[in-house]
Structures are given as structure tokens and as C-alpha cells.
Amino acid sequence: MISRNALRQGAWEFKLNVKNGEQFLLLVIIPIAIFLTLTQTAIIGGSKWDVAGALSVSITVSVLAAGFTSLAIATAFERRSGTLVTMGVTPISRVELVIGKTLSTVYLAAISALILGLVAVALGWRPTASTMLVPVILLLGIASVTGLAFLLAGTMRAEAVLALANGIFVIAMIFGGIIFQYPGFVGTVVNMFPPAALFNCMSHVLGSMPPDSPPLIVSIGVLLAWSVIGTLAAAKFFKWR
């Protein structure tokens, strides 16, 4: 059960995020641009993507943007400004603060996915029964990267987090098994990381499964494993100031 304070913190963080122009760019404009590029042009892969495949890519990108890049950068700068310590003397507990921040990323990713879904519908895509599983995959995807975001934000200088989180985001988009699939051993290794695992799950439930993609249960297992690893590492190493 999520406490009222965690819900309040989530709403507060969400409000701050939506007012931020950079966040809007990262969470809405970039995923939509990717979606339109993939479906309307043949720049990537030599031919136009099917709408479901492009939707899987762009929702994966928006989840990584909200749950990892945006969260890591915002938390790192709040840590530097002393905001996190300031909240330590209010009735918000540290656990509630972390839950609130995670909730905010869930709201952002859900809105982004909804907008992308509407654009996809406008382009002729129609949801199926398995589409109902998108929220579950979305939550799993967020859980798989938020721990890593907190780990980064809680152990490094804000400027370093800014550079690293953006760098990882770009690398994940290009080489993370989202847009380009890798065969053989390289593909197996890439599929063991959250970006590819999330993309594979999303592709399964949206009906655009790429060839040679691992079974859904394997990709879900990968996301769960990273959720545990990230959360435990963040809990152990996160420094509040």
C-alpha cells in the first residue's frame, strides 16, 4: 500500500517535471520523433517500420528517458542543491521520497505511452488483447532502471550524472538492441540488459516480435533481475548529500 505522503510526493515531482521543457522534449517529443521517423521514412533499416514495431521502440525509449535519464539527472541535482537533505526534516520519509520519485516517472512514462498510442491509432494501428499488458511491462521496465538511476544519482557529482545518464541513453538507443537487433552471442548479451529486454517484452505484447527474440518470460526475468540488482545497489551505495 502506497502511503499518502508518497502519493503527495509523486504528484509534486510530477508537477515539477511537466513544467520542465527539457523533460517534455525527452519524454514526448523525442519518442514521437522516433516513432514518426520509423513509420514514415526508410532512413532506419532501409524500409518503413510497421506501426506496432515503431510503437514498441518509442515506448521503450520514453520509459528509459523517464525512468533512467530524467530521474537520474533530476535526483543528482536535487542532491547537490540539498533538496534531498531538506526533505529529511519533513514528515516525508526517505522510502516515501524514493517511492514518490518513482511514481512520478510512472505517471510521465504512462502519459508518454498514451500519447504514442494515440498517434499510432491515428496511423491505423489497433490495440489487441495483449495490449492490456502494456502497463505491466511499463512498470517492470521502469522498475528495472530506476534503481540504476538512483545508484548513479546517489554516488556521483551532478555534472557527471548529467553527462553519463545522457550518454547511456544515447548508447542504449543506438546499441541497446532497441532499433538494431544483433544476431548470435552479441544479441544474447545485449538482451540481458534492460533496454533490449524491455523492447522485447513490449514487442511481444504489441504483436511486433522481432525474429530471434527471446521468449517473453526470459525478458521479464531479465527486467526483474535488474530491478532487484538496481534497488539493492542503490540502497547500499546511495548518499543523500
Binding site: 520542465n20 541535482f77 542543491s81 540539498g82 533538496t83 537533505v85 531538506t86 526533505m87 526534516v89
Partner: peptide
């Protein structure tokens, strides 16, 4: 925390708020 208030040094809370 319900009965205590504190202001800490070298802190700028929520700079974008």
C-alpha cells in the same frame, strides 16, 4: 517531524519550483 522544523545551511530547496 510533525513538531520539528529545521533550516539547514548551504541548501537551495527545489530550485525549479
Amino acid at each position: 517531524t510533525q513538531i520539528l522544523g529545521a533550516s539547514l545551511q548551504d541548501v537551495t530547496p527545489y530550485p525549479t519550483a
